[in-house]
Each structure stands twice: as structure tokens, then as C-alpha cells.
Amino acid sequence: MDFRDDVLPLKDKLYRLAYQIVWDTAEAEDIAQEVMIRVWGKRDEWAQLGSMEAYCLAAARNLSLDRKARKESHHAVLEPEACGRADESADPHARLVGKERMVLLRRFLRQLPEKQRTALMLREVEEMSYKEIADALRCTEAQVKVTLFRARQKLKQWFEEIEGYGL
């Protein structure tokens, strides 16, 4: 068992999961660090944990929700720059519209129920299977599918509405 090989590779996933709940980079780093150190302290019990990644993600989610409940973050909406490039359309107008849509999309994502947003993120960003997401969210695969279905339907509906507004 080695911290660098077994625990540290999870840092990005844990950070991203925590970040989309607390919306605060320092807080998300703190949560990811705490989870990794906690799981390293429990290395004698790893055999009983089943999937260590699912355990860490569940712990990070719970910790993030606790911290968020204790102290609501006042950080601004995630700006496109915070995630790197915005849109690579060649046309400046299209780029502007794309950037505007990105900001609106992020605002919409923040308004989604936390479970739907987390399930979406684990599927879209971390590319996890339904089973892995179910393990991380401590629910059944069927519940994950329902949660994702609702989130995607809302997303689709949102795109239709945005188009209707002419954006």
C-alpha cells in the first residue's frame, strides 16, 4: 500500500466532486485532502471497503454537503475562464454567443438538485458506469438512471427554452 500510488490518483476526481458542491476552490482542496488522509488512516480496513474509489467519492460528497450546509459559499458563478477555454468557434459572434450560453449553462447547472448535478458530473466528466455511480452515491443503479434521466430531460428542456429566447 502506497499513498502516492493508491490514494493520490483520486485527488482530481475528489476535488471536482467537492468543487461542484461547495463552489470554492480552497474548500474543495481542503475536502479532497481530508478525505485522502482519512482513507489513508484507514488503510488496514481497505479490504472491507469494497471499492475504495466509491468510498472516497461518497466521503467527499458527504463532507462537501456538511461544509456547504454549515457555511454557504458566497463565491460567484464559475466563470468560463475557471475551466480553461470557453468555446473554440472561429466566428467571433458565435464565440460570444457560445460564451454567453456557457455562463447561462453553468448558472443552470448550479440550480439543479445536488444529486442530479453530481450524477451528471460523475457520468459526463468522470465517465463512470451506472454501477460505479450507484456505489459512490450509495443508491441503486435504477435510482441513478432515474436521477440522470431527470437531469438530462431538464437540460434538454433548458436548451429548448434558451433557443426559444433567441440566445
Binding site: 482530481d12 485522502m36 456557457m102
Partner: peptide
């Protein structure tokens, strides 16, 4: 119209903790 969502998912992959985080942990 759907492009921002799929671009967003790709951009999220680039969200990482700050430099020196791994060493600190």
C-alpha cells in the same frame, strides 16, 4: 445549441486542484 453542454463536460475535466496540492497532501 447543444454544443455548450458537451464542451462544458470536456472543460470540467481540466478542473484540477492548484499547483503543489499533491505535495501538500
Amino acid at each position: 445549441k447543444y454544443r455548450p453542454w458537451f464542451v462544458e463536460a470536456s472543460l470540467w475535466k481540466e478542473v484540477e486542484p492548484g499547483g503543489g496540492f499533491a505535495q501538500r497532501v
